[in-house]
Write a protein that binds this DNA or RNA. Sequence first.
DNA 1: CTGAAAGCGCTTACAG
DNA 2: CTGAAAGCGCTTACAG
Lengths: 346, 346
Amino acid sequence: MAAMTIRDIARLCNVSISTVSRAINNDPSINEKTRERVMSVVRKFNYIPNNSARNLKMTESNTVALIVKGVNNPFFQGMFPYFQKELVENGYDYFLHTISGDADEVYVAEEIAKEKRLKGIILLGGTMDYPDVVLKNMQVPMVLCSVAGRGVNETTGPVHVSSVSIDDPKEAYKVTDYLIHKGHRKIAMLTGTREDNTVGLLRLSGYRRALEDNGIPYDEDLIAYMDAQNPEYTEANGYAMMTRLLKRKKEFTAVFVIADRMAIGAYKAIYDAGLKIPQDISVVGFDGIELTRYMEPSLTTVIQPVQKMVDSSVRLLMAQIGGSQEREHLVYEAELHERDSVLDKN
Amino acid sequence: MAAMTIRDIARLCNVSISTVSRAINNDPSINEKTRERVMSVVRKFNYIPNNSARNLKMTESNTVALIVKGVNNPFFQGMFPYFQKELVENGYDYFLHTISGDADEVYVAEEIAKEKRLKGIILLGGTMDYPDVVLKNMQVPMVLCSVAGRGVNETTGPVHVSSVSIDDPKEAYKVTDYLIHKGHRKIAMLTGTREDNTVGLLRLSGYRRALEDNGIPYDEDLIAYMDAQNPEYTEANGYAMMTRLLKRKKEFTAVFVIADRMAIGAYKAIYDAGLKIPQDISVVGFDGIELTRYMEPSLTTVIQPVQKMVDSSVRLLMAQIGGSQEREHLVYEAELHERDSVLDKN
DNA sequence: CTGAAAGCGCTTACAG
DNA sequence: CTGAAAGCGCTTACAG
């Protein structure tokens, strides 16, 4: 038995397909009795309209898509409920679409925009480094949220989309400077791959500048890069990188880890080496995911202003949907949240 | 400027839309020169076909959807790569679709099946307790993976779909029995809500039966239920439940936590009470997520056979797609993996 | 309030 | 190898 169509329902009800369509879509012009009769048949046969046909025919939807690169990023996961709430409150339908790390997010965005007649798109993750020509072709309002890349902190972000981000070098500077003021001079770092030119590079640059400003020489031996074969901010990578760092037998009293999840692995590596946190090694993370409150000791980390970032992303998207030609590139301040993983050596 | 259609490209190339379609879809009958000419225009104008039109017209796709209830479940996340690998190796396109906890997963499954002309669906999470009439209407092969519910462990699972799961009561029994054999008699449990009739109830029943078989009276005061207002297997809930349990001042030497993520919060609550793991309280988790290796001490937990479950789900789906009328309900054995969070009191 | 008709943007036999 | 035509399953002016 093939799937039912609107035509089958129409036949079963002795009405036209127009009427069935009106019943399903709650068209106010339809007679209530007719509607109920049609809907009872719809329910009885478990009829489900074909969304492809619907999307194809409708000239516009009321839908915003949240496209996420990296489903298993707990930092992004923490944002979902806020996005959902904000978008629904603004009267939009909303769905989450996850794409793999190697997908072309802008192409996918356009593809879905066409397919679903989207009102707008929020892109979570990814980079700012899209060629201008790509963004120029975007047919639908788009906001980049929590992206990283060269463009972000310069005055000229991509001109065809708005963006919301933090200042990665600045926040990394704050972390490093904080550790220095707590009396640490040998500060290690767990960063991205050597080839990384997004968050890894940006945060490394902030770290270097802070050392420089405090008259501490930069020591490449205190940097652990992520394995390029498996570039993920996971516990396993944090563990591997920290273990590698400890094996070098270079002295250090603190480590800055550029992602909270990696800090979890780093903790384990430190414990496995028979060392204590923070007595032997102080640790600072980055992102501010919920889990960090439950680590032992609780992790001092940079908490990104998730709610503000979400609110602004939605606000900027609404503005674009409303016809605004203005594009904004907001950069928010994050908060270095002191907990129990850093030793004050003063 | 409105979005381009196949018609625009045809006009620009001085060919028919059929030819453009053939170029885009790599139809072997097309002249290579023509194809290149068309594709260069496609690229130049960044033309993207409308998938709704495509899906509507095509009679079948080669696509399997993985529908997941609960994106932020790290146990499910651990399965994604395996699913991806298996499905691609079997020659299928694949995409992940996440739905919220309150969505009707079977309805959504049917909706997407129609929209995308799916070959099959794997439903990850959710329950086995679908009315038979609902599953009977499924127009497309479906396998339920890692579901829980009354039906699973009985001989008659839903007859219109296959399923792959573990035996929740049995595994909970193993955990409890293990703790008893390690010399524990006062064993607490962090479970689901009072109303839960899926994993929470099933694992609780296994726990009770193990106590019974070992002549240990069941004590309701040693059970912490999840708050029904916020029924999630999160660190925060684990922390809150463990804290509540400790406040009761009932003596216990071990606790069985029905989800690893909750165990993370439970650890913190135990530490905050000035107690040690496992010296004061032994802890056993459930699921076997990666993170548990990095806890301090590393968590003894029930590791679900993720790879087997994925492989079988895909295999059963392939069989259904291939026309098999047989439906199987596989129940796998999980592994109680001993690590460092349980004290041997013998 | 309801129906007949046009058309959304594609794919795919069919004919040449 | 290419084009004209039919049609996928809906929605929505338009007419009555």
